[in-house]
Amino acid sequence: MAANMSACLLALHRCCQYPALALVARRQWSSSPAPPPLHRRLLLFLTQQYSDIEMLISWSSRRTRKQLHKKNVYYGYTESFYGRDVASAYFVLRMKGTFRYVGQSEWYGADQRNKLGLFEDWEFLNYKERQLEEVDLSDTEINYTGLSNIEVQRSLKTLKVSHCPEVDDWFLEKLHIFEDTLEELDISHCPRITIGGLAALRNLKGLKRLNVSSLAKISNPGLVIILLEEMLPQCDITATGYKLDLDPVMDNEEEEEEEEMEKEKNLFQRWR
């Protein structure tokens, strides 16, 4: 029965082809005017409405980007009033980081915050000519643009930017501005750093300590660490949180760190 029917349909189909030869072949993006029926136009209208949701999402992501940019913007206004060093210090404090002045032992910004996370001690405004020696910007949203705020610190010895989601290869490349002074760099747990950025650390020939633990995007950490040690021979490189194939026995602590890394990776992906 079915075969009979299909044969019948085939014959019909073949029949249809002859008159159709005279017709204009129409195709996907044909531009000749043929207004679609009303309900199809309505549907089209609705789909266009739904793409507004897409627009909304892209709008919100643009807004987040704008906020990030705002946080990392160059503090030219502060600089014009108080000078470059105060602007750098103010930037670090606004990013919720901490710093230490040259020749001082205590860190500034660590416990001068109130419950809202705002700092209350505005003493740093008086130190116009005092340079920063150590800067800790861990767990902040500093990015490539924000680095221009501390660019002027010519005696910076330590920079810590671990757990920073916005620190990427371009950030590492720009670190050559501290090449004469920088001795310690902590870029652990930064999910966007790849081997391409680590190669740029070759400009920091004065580096003594480097922490590259748990970089999620590095695929073969064993080789990378060896190459880094070759590139920076006088530097002490710390690299934990990697599952190196050379030692099959893994400590619990390492496992935990591994999990943490995995979590971070997921978080990063979701955050993207």
Partner: peptide, 8 residues
């Protein structure tokens, strides 16, 4: 003619 269907 004027629609998108075609036997080709």
């Amino acid at each position: 003619p004027g629609s998108s269907w075609t036997p080709f």
